[in-house]
Amino acid sequence: MTYVDKPTVSNVVKLEDPNVAKVNKLEVMLNTGTDIYQGACKKRGSTLKDEYRKVAGIAYMDPKDMAKLGVANWESVLVKSDWGEVVVYAAHSRDAPHEGMIFIPKGPWANVIVSPETYCCNDPTYKGIDATVEKTDKEVLLMADLMRAVYKKYVKTEKDVGELSSLGEMPVYKKK
């Protein structure tokens, strides 16, 4: 196992913390940016693989916030904003404490929930986005599957989106 298989996140979340009130939905501020683990995957050309999903399809959270939701490291959470929703893994942030804030590495999963508006600077707003987080049983999609589900890539008809099996970790090429 390499360091990019699962980034080092300490397992300090106390799901049964009596000092934390349980909630079903948590209101948070979403911040995005680049991450060293994500960069390592991109350099190795593995953005279609499971290892990239584990470093970019993740929400780093404060352990108290994770306890409020009753989620542990590597469990799925649904993050919603005004621009969309996406399922990502939850993980204890290496930069905690920062209750009420989550960090999702800039990339395909974050792009689903950030504003597409660039305000004439060629970059969307990646910081300070109001969002909610809730626990879910849904699976975190591989990048190719996320592209198909959200942007209708690699499908012939709209009906195909929900009926096709996973595209997996293989490159997807479109025949002309």
Rank of each mutant, 00 (worst) to 15 (best):
T2Y: 06
D5H: 12
V9E: 10
S10D: 14
N11V: 09
N11E: 15
V12T: 13
V12S: 10
V13Q: 04
L15R: 04
D17H: 05
P18A: 12
P18C: 11
N19P: 02
V20W: 02
A21L: 13
A21V: 15
V23F: 03
N24I: 04
K25P: 05
E27N: 13
E27I: 06
M29N: 14
M29A: 12
L30S: 09
N31W: 08
N31M: 09
T32V: 02
T32K: 03
D35I: 02
D35V: 05
C41L: 00
C41G: 01
K42M: 13
R44T: 11
L48N: 13
K49I: 03
Y52Q: 00
R53D: 01
R53L: 06
V55N: 07
I58W: 01
A59T: 10
Y60P: 03
D62T: 10
D62E: 06
P63M: 04
P63I: 13
P63C: 11
D65S: 13
G70F: 02
N73F: 08
N73Q: 10
W74V: 08
V77F: 05
V77T: 06
V79N: 03
S81G: 02
S81Y: 01
S81T: 15
W83M: 07
E85D: 14
E85V: 07
V86K: 01
V88F: 04
V88H: 06
A91Q: 12
S93Q: 04
M101Q: 15
I102W: 03
I113W: 02
V114H: 08
S115D: 15
P116Q: 03
Y119L: 14
C120P: 00
C121Q: 13
D123N: 13
T125V: 12
Y126M: 12
A131I: 06
V133I: 13
E134N: 11
T136C: 05
D137L: 04
K138F: 05
K138I: 08
L142G: 00
L142K: 00
L146K: 02
L146E: 00
L146A: 06
A149I: 01
K152V: 07
K153G: 00
K153D: 10
G162S: 06
E163S: 08
S165M: 08
E169L: 02
M170W: 04
P171M: 08
V172H: 05
K176R: 09
